[in-house]
Design a protein around this nucleic acid. Structure first.
Lengths: 174, 174
DNA sequence: CAGGGATATACACCGAGTGTATATCTCGCG
DNA sequence: CGCGAGATATACACTCGGTGTATATCCCTG
């Protein structure tokens, strides 16, 4: 999820060490997918190489030595620009669901059965997210809603595609 | 989009060369994002290394030399399994939209302005996709619908988040 | 027969992601 | 007192996916 820019944003808040950045990232954005340490330091290394941040000398603090990273002017500029720009909305028109359906049709497999199991998996996940939405704090609720809306979108597409399966098969085999 | 499995699927249809695989992939799945040659051959190399396909000797045909790739039993098994399994529905609960909103709030930027420009970008893209949906063949229409459904999902989330912005700001700063 | 376009593959490089190793400090417990 | 567990902190090696570029052959046209 655009880790370099996100770390840059956290550094814009205040200078920090890799370890703390990882904690912050996980607290704010890590829902169910914590940032691995390996990625933190390699990302910081690239940011430093490109002049977006500067790494301080290793300082013995309480605890092991650590480096303090500070964002640069170039880093701030880049981050501001990214934050202001909207995310490109569905630029590629690709989806694994579509891929599996077409491959199933191409190879004479049961595409409708696949769509059914996919629908079931989606419904299961929607029940989980509905529960999370109900019990969690606002941040979790918003993320659950985001997931739920997109799962609903998939469900609509699954139903639509199920209805069009014969026509799609004809067009694909042509 | 899971390129290795997709190529495996195309090879299950019939043995083929890298070049033709790229053409087939683009024709069926490449909508606006053709598969680069570099990725074709490196992927085939990995599939061959892992025993999912076997590469024939280079054959002089009409045209330059080419290698014919054939799927193996192991490859078929792997592909069948993948095709039957549903895609994991929204496992991570992460989204760039959410990230940008939270970072804007954390750093005292205008999150609502960002949400507005994002909404505008989405609406613009929805008009494009609506047109594609109207004029294109069924395959394009289905992909456009998939995109449209997900853009609508984002719009709902954008509106919801706009309405909750103050509460979210309070929770994030805490 | 020269050369442009289609066919076909190889290679080098980078970012992202994963796993593992390593070193230091703190604190509790016998 | 000292020793080991756990928290803190970074480095490194490796793989995959993705992008761009180079290279070689054949075909067709003028």
């Amino acid at each position: 999820m655009s880790v370099p820019l996100t770390l840059l944003g956290l550094l814009e808040r205040e200078p920090s060490h890799g370890y703390d950045l990882k904690r912050d990232y996980d607290a704010f954005f890590g829902r169910g997918k914590p940032l691995p340490y390996g990625q933190v330091y390699s990302t910081l290394g690239r940011l430093a190489r490109d002049g977006k941040v500067v790494a301080g000398e290793a300082e013995p603090g309480d605890g092991p030595e650590r480096k303090r990273y500070v964002i640069t002017e170039a880093g701030v500029t880049e981050f501001e620009h990214w934050l202001g720009e909207p995310v490109a909305p569905e630029p590629t028109l690709q989806s694994v669901l579509f891929t599996k359906v077409v491959l199933a049709l191409l190879l004479g497999r049961d595409a409708e059965a696949y769509l059914d199991t996919q629908r079931a998996a989606h419904l299961r996940r929607m029940r989980e997210l509905t529960e999370l939405r109900r019990t969690g704090p606002l941040v979790d609720a918003l993320l659950a809603d985001h997931g739920l809306f997109h799962l609903e979108a998939d469900l609509r597409w699954i139903d639509l595609t199920t209805a069009r399966l014969d026509a799609l098969a004809a067009e694909v085999r042509a």
